[in-house]
């Protein structure tokens, strides 16, 4: 292993550890039950509890995105209509700034929560989930596809010509080579999701009661989320620099 690789990997690892410590801190410091009704004073815990569900969901969305990219890139021929359809949709969705997703989500949140019958919260949660999936999946699909494509054709060709099956080509050659790229893509998607979460939480809470937000320490959480997003992008950039 050459030195630059060790340096890159350790920087990436340290960043990742920091990010996870931060999450641990965030989760340890809040104790709320999911689905709690919002009152004038409990705005912040509810927003937080949503956040904790959203993170695993975005992770799931990332995994789903990776699987989807594998299917599109490796199983379907480039001429397939379904692949072309999905790829153009993905291109459009990745082009939309996350701010617009945030605004879209806030629009839904606000219209439901202002109805304030209390039942709005369930819908709100699904709105958040959908926003996250739409935000995270296209980016993951796109970066994973790019990483898979970056594995040079001669490498695949030579493995196939030696009689390897598609599974062997993928597992022995393509995935190990594309892995840093795929991971980088996931981190990028994750950082985008975190930034959007900060955005949502910020707008969402401030829109309610400015005083409650300050007393509940929402501001510091908001800043922390943004910092986490930044850390994730740092992690991503180091992975991306990693020479293959």
């Amino acid at each position: 292993m050459d030195k630059s690789k060790i340096v890159f990997h350790s920087i990436a690892l340290i960043t990742l550890v920091v990010v996870f410590l931060f999450f641990w801190y965030l989760i340890e410091n809040t104790h709320t039950e999911i689905g709690q009704q919002p009152t004038a004073n409990s705005q912040q815990p509810t927003a937080d509890s949503h956040l904790y569900l959203l993170l695993p969901i975005s992770l799931l969305a990332i995994l789903l995105g990776v699987a989807c990219a594998f299917y599109l890139e490796e199983r379907l021929p480039p001429t397939n209509w379904f692949r072309r359809l999905i790829e153009s949709e993905v291109a459009i969705f990745t082009g939309i700034p996350s701010l617009l997703y945030g605004l879209l989500a806030v629009e839904i949140f606000v219209s439901y929560t202002l109805g304030s019958s209390g039942q709005g919260w369930g819908v709100l949660f699904y709105a958040e989930v959908l926003t996250f999936i739409v935000l995270v999946m296209p980016l993951t699909i796109r970066t994973t596809q790019a990483a898979l494509r970056s594995v040079a054709t001669p490498i695949r060709e030579s493995a196939y010509a030696l009689g390897a099956s598609q599974w062997q080509v993928l597992s022995n050659q393509v995935v190990p080579l594309a892995f840093p790229g795929i991971l980088a893509g996931c981190c990028r998607a994750m950082s985008r999701a975190l930034a959007a979460a900060a955005l949502l939480m910020g707008i969402h809470t401030w829109g309610y009661t400015h005083e409650t937000a300050i007393s509940a320490g929402i501001h510091s959480r908001y800043v922390l989320l943004l910092v986490a997003a930044l850390l994730f992008s740092t992690f991503f950039s180091f992975l991306k620099e990693n020479p293959t």
């Binding site: 001669p154 490498i155 060709e157 030579s158 493995a159 196939y160 010509a161 030696l162 009689g163 050659q173 080579l177 293959t244």
Partner: peptide
Amino acid sequence: LRKTVGMVFQRPNPLP
């Protein structure tokens, strides 16, 4: 089949 019929390409393409 590909085991019996080997192939060498235009550009040397050893695996990395």
